[in-house]
Amino acid sequence: MNLKKVGNQTVVFANPPVILSSYSVVGPMEGQGPLGNSFNQVWPDNINGEKSWEVAETKMLQEALQGAVTQAGVQSDQIDFMLAGDLLNQIISANFAARQMALPFIGVYGACSTMALSMALGSMLIDGQFAKHILVGVSSHHDTAERQYRLPTEQGAQRLMSQQWTVTGAGSLLLGQAGVGPRITAATLGRVLDYGETDVNNMGAAMAPAVADTILNHFKDLNRAPSDYDLIASGDLGSVGLGLATEVLKRSGYEMGDTYTDCGVLIFDPSQDVHAGASGCACSAVVFAGHIMERIKAGELKRVLLVGSGALHSPTSAFQGESIPGIGHAVVIEA
């Protein structure tokens, strides 16, 4: 049997799945950020008339999923599986959005790496000929995440300089076996790395080793170098984590150079006072579905490596003093 796995952690697709459409919905702050124009929908506020933030997040994810389906011009009965996830306990945003979509549903949890993970899994399902069309989507919401992981939003405490701001938004892609659009050609699934970071206010530092490990193994598996990519974007390391991952990769023999950036650094302007940048499932999802897809379609980028980054802790594990395990999943997108 011709195994599609290459090296230790990478799969290379024989018939690379096509990204038929992408759709992004964001909150007002993301809309005001430097990438504001690349998103399909910008909500006027974080709740948009819904009865709770959680309901608003679900609604956002539904709109992103529906938007991708409509844009691709594919009937929903032609979609074989839907893969989605989010940050809330028991991934309720994805579960509730799936209730509306009424498609065979695979819930995915990879913390903030869920988009890249879903893209990798969806591509494997398509290339493995288990599906023709796969809908993937993720969401995160600043206020739902704050109240689950941190403090009530009206609590008057100062945020630390290393803290990141959870993106309010949802991003979705429709992947197809054939059609016109950029293709997902390979994926490197990461392993869980824990370098002992215990500070939940410094998630970038917790995730950077795992992201660096995945990038390094990706290069080794495919015998590639940073210069083989027009853009390498990690998910939500933020400014602290981006610096750390760059330094760790340098010590491991890879000069990342200007092609390496982070979605959590791109989405907000420093003047928006988010401290170390952005985080959340939606961070890499909307930056990819909006900004990066726009640049690929404009012909500016030929080959992109998106490395979703996830911090695999919970408030309980953090209170019990456990360190924060990180993970990175990489997907290669080619025009």
Binding site: S162, V192, G196, P209, D213, V248
Partner: peptide
Amino acid sequence: SNQNLREPTINITPEEYKKLSQQRTP
């Protein structure tokens, strides 16, 4: 932290990383 990671992996020990991360955290 992780023990005995399969090679290749990043060339930094958890102790060195801790130092680096402390330096870089604002």
